[in-house]
């Protein structure tokens, strides 16, 4: 029930941001459609832990901030690599351990690896992830396991 209410609130916020017309009639249409969507989603049982990860709470926001910093650093690495491929380009491929137990945690980890330029997830198995890295430096970021630790901490599975 809590998830349905929060889904309704999120839908309503998005509707208000995108609409831009605030007359009583239009707003009542918006409320009606958001309520209908939330109820249909509840009846279809798609409002679950994965579709609406309420339990992650504010920790995920701190993780995003850290990820943004990593993306900045990785972008500079890749830019150097593109400009001077002779010096920096060392493509390599390796597998790393995944310590998250839930599917959602694994997806967050794999997508974080891909989102950081210089490393791309090529294959995701039950407990290993295959990564293609552009330089030794960017490979080190995944091999050290810091990102893995942080995602596990965000998921509350530590």
């Amino acid at each position: 029930m809590l998830r349905t209410i929060s889904l309704f609130l999120v839908l309503m916020a998005v509707w208000l941001l995108l609409s831009g017309y605030y007359t009583p009639l239009i707003i009542s249409f918006g409320i009606a459609s958001c309520l209908l969507s939330a109820l249909i989603a509840r009846r279809m049982e798609v409002v679950d832990n994965e579709g609406h990860p309420l339990h992650l709470g504010p920790r995920i926001v701190f993780y995003w901030a850290w990820l943004l910093k990593e993306i900045f650093k990785a972008n500079i690495d890749v830019a150097k690599c593109v400009l001077f491929p002779k010096t920096y380009l060392r493509p390599n491929m390796f597998t790393a351990k995944v310590t998250q137990t839930s599917d959602l945690g694994k997806v967050i980890y794999a997508n974080s690896i891909t989102l950081t330029p210089g490393t791309v997830t090529v294959d995701l198995d039950n407990d290993t992830v295959m990564v293609h890295a552009m330089t030794e430096n960017s490979a080190e970021g995944v091999k050290s396991g810091e990102m893995d630790r942080r995602v596990t901490a965000v998921m509350g599975e530590a």
């Binding site: 593109v82 989102l115 330029p117 210089g118 791309v120 552009m134």
Partner: peptide, 26 residues
């Protein structure tokens, strides 16, 4: 511009994906 340059210059598909990732993110 570096992204476009990388898409043209880098040697194989996987390294080009890295270059494309730059435009997508930062």
């Amino acid at each position: 511009i570096i992204t476009g340059f990388g898409l043209l210059r880098l040697p194989d598909l996987y390294t080009r994906i890295h270059a494309g990732g730059m435009a997508d993110t930062l």
